[in-house]
Design a protein around this nucleic acid. Structure first.
Length: 421
DNA sequence: TCTGGGGTCCTAGGACCC
DNA sequence: TCTGGGGTCCTAGGACCC
C-alpha cells in the first residue's frame, strides 16, 4: 500500500502557525507581486473564491470578511516543509517527496505489525503536535488512488484525517462519487474530451475499455486509467536533481529601457546559477525570454526568447550572466513596455567544473570558486549582500511588490519570533 | 491600478544518417 | 515517367502538476 500525505492549505497553514488568533479565521496567501491567490483556508473557499483568482477581483470580499492576507514567503514555507517531511521520514522508512507539501510513503512491510490507518493517524498527530501543520493522508494500492483517498480524507471530518481505499468495493464506491476533474492526471483538455464522450464520473472512466483510453488519451491517460483500476505504474522517484532551472518574474511596474531589462535578466541569471550550484550541477545552455503585458490589449504586444550554448557546462555566475546579456541584446526591441522576463538553464550535468582542451575561459577553477564564495557571503549576510553591478539598485522600480510580508522565522537568526509574557 | 512561478513527460515531425 | 526503407536524435509544443 502507498500513502499520500498532503498538508492542508499549506502556505496558509504555515502563516497561521506564526500569527496568533487566526484559528478558524479566513486566511489566504498571495503570489509574487501580490497578484493572485495561491493558497487559502477552507473559510476562504467558502466565499466561493478559487485558487489562482487575481487578488484585486476578490479584495472587497476578503476585507468585508476580515480575512488575513499574506504575501508569499517561500523561504519560510520551504523551511517548514523540511520539518514536516523529516517527521514523515521518522514514521516510515521509504518515502518520496513529491512537492513542497506532499510526500508519498511506502507502507509495504508495515501491514504485518500495524494497522496502516492507525500508523498514519499517529504520524498526523505527531506532525500537528510538533509543527502545528494539519496533514491529511490517503492510503491505497496505487498513487492515483491514494490521491483519491486523500481528497476524501480532506473533505469528510469523520475519517479523522486518514482515509484508506482497502478493497474492491471501497475502490468502486470511492470512484463512483468522485469528480472527473479531480483525478490526478486529468486536466482541462482531457476533461472536455471525456465529457463529450459521455463520461462523467471517475468510475465511468475507470470502467472504459483500456484500448479505447489508450487510443484517445495516449500513454499518460492510459497510465492514469491503469492506476485507477489498481495497477501501479506511475513512477515519481528520481526527481532530486532538476533538468531545467528557471527564474522568472513579472515586474511590479512595466519597464522599457534595455538597461532595466538587463538588470532584471542579470538578477534572474544569478538566482538560476545559485540554484544550479546548490545541486552541484552545471548548465550547457542559457535561454532568456521577455514579454509585454498580455492583459493590456491597448499596448503593442511583443514576446521573444533566445538561447545560446556554452562551450562547456558552467555554473559561473559571471559567464552565464554575460551570455544572458548578449541574449537580451538579441531580443530587445525599443518602444515596448515589458512586464516579465526570465532565464532558463538547461542541458544540466553533474559537477561544477569541467575540463576542456583549448578552453577559451581562463582560470575556470578560480572563477567557480569566486561564485561559491559569493554564495557563502550571501548565505551569511543576506540574500543579496553581494551581487554583480549590472543587476542594478536593490530598490529598482520593477522589483517585486510585497504589501503583506512576513519574517523568515525559521531561517534567519535576526528574524526569530519574540514572545512576550 | 492590480492578472504567479517552477517544473515534468509525451508526441509528432523534421533533420540527418546509412 | 519512375523517386527505398529503416533508424536515431533533437526540438517545439501540448498537457499536466503543485
Amino acid at each position: 500500500m502507498i500513502a499520500l500525505a498532503d498538508c492542508n492549505s499549506f502556505f496558509a497553514s504555515v502563516e497561521k502557525v506564526f500569527h496568533a488568533g487566526l484559528k478558524g479565521k479566513p486566511v489566504c496567501v498571495l503570489s509574487s507581486n501580490d497578484g493572485n491567490i495561491v493558497a487559502m483556508t477552507t473559510e476562504v473557499k467558502a466565499f466561493g473564491i478559487k485558487r489562482g483568482t487575481p487578488y484585486f477581483e476578490v479584495k472587497d470580499i476578503l476585507e468585508r470578511n476580515h480575512a488575513a492576507v499574506f504575501s508569499s514567503n517561500m523561504m519560510l514555507y520551504a523551511a517548514m516543509s523540511r520539518r514536516v517531511q523529516s517527521i514523515m521520514r521518522q514514521s516510515v522508512s521509504h518515502t518520496e517527496p513529491y512537492s513542497i507539501d506532499e510526500q508519498f510513503l511506502y507502507l509495504d512491510g508495515y501491514e504485518k505489525h500495524h494497522d496502516p490507518v492507525g500508523l498514519m493517524k499517529d504520524m498526523v498527530r505527531k506532525i500537528a503536535l510538533w509543527t502545528d501543520i494539519p496533514v491529511s493522508v490517503g492510503i491505497a494500492s496505487t498513487k492515483t488512488l491514494a490521491k483519491v483517498a486523500n481528497k476524501y480524507a480532506k473533505k469528510y471530518k469523520g475519517y479523522g484525517s486518514v482515509c484508506m481505499i482497502g478493497n474492491e468495493e471501497q475502490r468502486r464506491k470511492a470512484l463512483a462519487g468522485f469528480e472527473l476533474s479531480d483525478i490526478w492526471g486529468i486536466g482541462a483538455s482531457s476533461l472536455a474530451r471525456l465529457i463529450s464522450s459521455g463520461v462523467t464520473t471517475a468510475l465511468e472512466f475507470a470502467d472504459k475499455p483500456g484500448d479505447w483510453v489508450h487510443r484517445h488519451f495516449h500513454k499518460p491517460g492510459y497510465q492514469t486509467w491503469l492506476e485507477l483500476n489498481g495497477h501501479p505504474c506511475i513512477d515519481t522517484s528520481e526527481i532530486l536533481k532538476r533538468q531545467t532551472i528557471t527564474t522568472s518574474r513579472s515586474f511590479s511596474k512595466m519597464i522599457s529601457s534595455k538597461e532595466d531589462l538587463k538588470a532584471s535578466v542579470a538578477t534572474f541569471a544569478a538566482s538560476c546559477c545559485n540554484k544550479l550550484r546548490a545541486q552541484d550541477s552545471a548548465s550547457g545552455c542559457v535561454c532568456v525570454f521577455a514579454g509585454s503585458n498580455r492583459f493590456r490589449e491597448d499596448l503593442p504586444q511583443y514576446s521573444n526568447f533566445a538561447s545560446a550554448r556554452l562551450c562547456t557546462p558552467s555554473a559561473d555566475t559571471v559567464e552565464i550572466t554575460k551570455t544572458a546579456m548578449d541574449l537580451v541584446d538579441e531580443i530587445y526591441r525599443p518602444g515596448i513596455l515589458y512586464k516579465k522576463s526570465g532565464v532558463i538553464l538547461s542541458d544540466i550535468s553533474s559537477g561544477c567544473s569541467h575540463h576542456l582542451l583549448f578552453d577559451p575561459m581562463e582560470k575556470r577553477e578560480a572563477r567557480i570558486e569566486l561564485s561559491r564564495t559569493m554564495d557563502k557571503l550571501n548565505q551569511r549576510y543576506g540574500l543579496n549582500a553581494l551581487s554583480l553591478a549590472i543587476t542594478g539598485c536593490p530598490d529598482a522600480a520593477w522589483k517585486v511588490r510585497k504589501d503583506f510580508p512576513t519574517p523568515n522565522y525559521l531561517t534567519d537568526i535576526e528574524q526569530l519570533m519574540t514572545v512576550e509574557l
